[in-house]
Design a protein around this nucleic acid. Structure first.
Length: 285
DNA sequence: AGCAACAAATATC
DNA sequence: GATATTTGTTGCT
């Protein structure tokens, strides 16, 4: 896959962007200028602008705009109706917002325990740093971000399927990596197959997440209401956090009721990065 | 027991 | 008054 004419992975750009976002999220109070941010990221202002724009599809200023609390509140304003509308539209007909189309099947822990399941995994570049992808026989089962150590990341993922056997094979997972992170592959006629392994409650939460369009957001309590457990917001939070197929199942589009980012298993900076990147993709579409 | 929550109550400026 | 901080409740693993 190294000789494949794929679009530039932008992984190197992400390192710069990540540093910038971390700086911004700790210094937003003193309204840092682009020059200051560029300096923190270790690049000249003009080079920084260029790298950033290439990665995000947005200028740093527009990106900042896209990840403020105010903007988050805007996204949330009619998040409840977003969930309702998504079910009505379904996968038929062109939706206004392009997104990754997905078909899924659910498996309870008991189901997959029956067969001696072997999961294949591989490591690939992405716009948000290196990812690990887990493939089950019937579709994609997991996606996680590598922060530093591949071993630790694999262990983190493997913990979710304690009975499964793991075998590395990057050639199996490479096609998933390509189509997940390249919007050109996001077409309803070639949906991505995913396998969700979890309890009934978890799977219902993850299914609901799949109906939140790119560039939009929802809240833990809205999801709770949507699945008919209006008081289970906290349990929803736990289930969202246990989502094994991050990015594909958009757990990064779940915010606190007041627009706060709350948590992200793979780091809040990365959550912000994905939200901002998606804002850029939506604008491009 | 432990959570990636939330709303209402209370304290603080 | 507007905003922090605390407290009680909540459902699922």
């Amino acid at each position: 896959m190294l000789d494949m004419p794929a679009p530039p992975p932008a992984t190197a750009d992400y390192a710069v962007v990540k540093r910038a976002i971390e700086f911004i999220s700790t210094h937003w109070r003193d309204q840092p200028s682009i020059d200051e941010i560029a300096e923190q990221a270790g690049l000249s202002p003009s080079h920084f602008q260029h790298v950033f724009k290439r990665w995000a599809g947005l200028t740093p200023k527009a990106f900042l705009q896209a990840i403020t609390i105010e903007r988050a509140r805007e996204l949330l304003r009619d998040s409840a109706t977003v969930l309702d509308a998504a079910y009505d539209v379904g996968l038929s007909g062109p939706s206004r917002l392009h997104d990754l189309f997905v078909t899924h099947e659910a498996l309870t822990p008991g189901d997959y325990r029956r067969d001696d399941l072997t999961l294949q995994y591989g490591f690939h570049p992405s716009p948000f740093g290196e990812v690990i992808i887990i493939a089950a026989p019937r579709g994609m089962a997991g996606l996680g971000f590598v922060d530093g150590d591949r071993e630790a990341t694999l262990a983190d993922m493997a913990r979710r399927w304690p009975r499964a056997r793991f075998a590395r094979d990057d050639t199996v997972t490479a096609p998933y990596a390509r189509r997940v992170f390249d919007p050109a592959f996001w077409r309803p006629d070639t949906p991505l197959r995913v396998v969700m392994i979890g309890t009934d409650f978890e799977v219902r939460v993850w299914e609901t997440l799949l109906t939140v369009p790119m560039g939009r957001a929802t809240t833990y309590s809205d999801i709770a209401r949507k699945i008919g457990r209006p008081k289970a917001a906290r349990a929803v939070g736990a289930a969202v956090g246990r989502n094994p197929i991050s990015f594909v199942v958009p757990c990064h589009r779940v915010l606190g009721r007041s627009g706060g980012l709350t948590g992200y298993h793979w780091g809040l900076a990365r959550k912000q990065a994905i939200i901002g990147w998606e804002a850029g993709q939506v604008r491009a579409a």
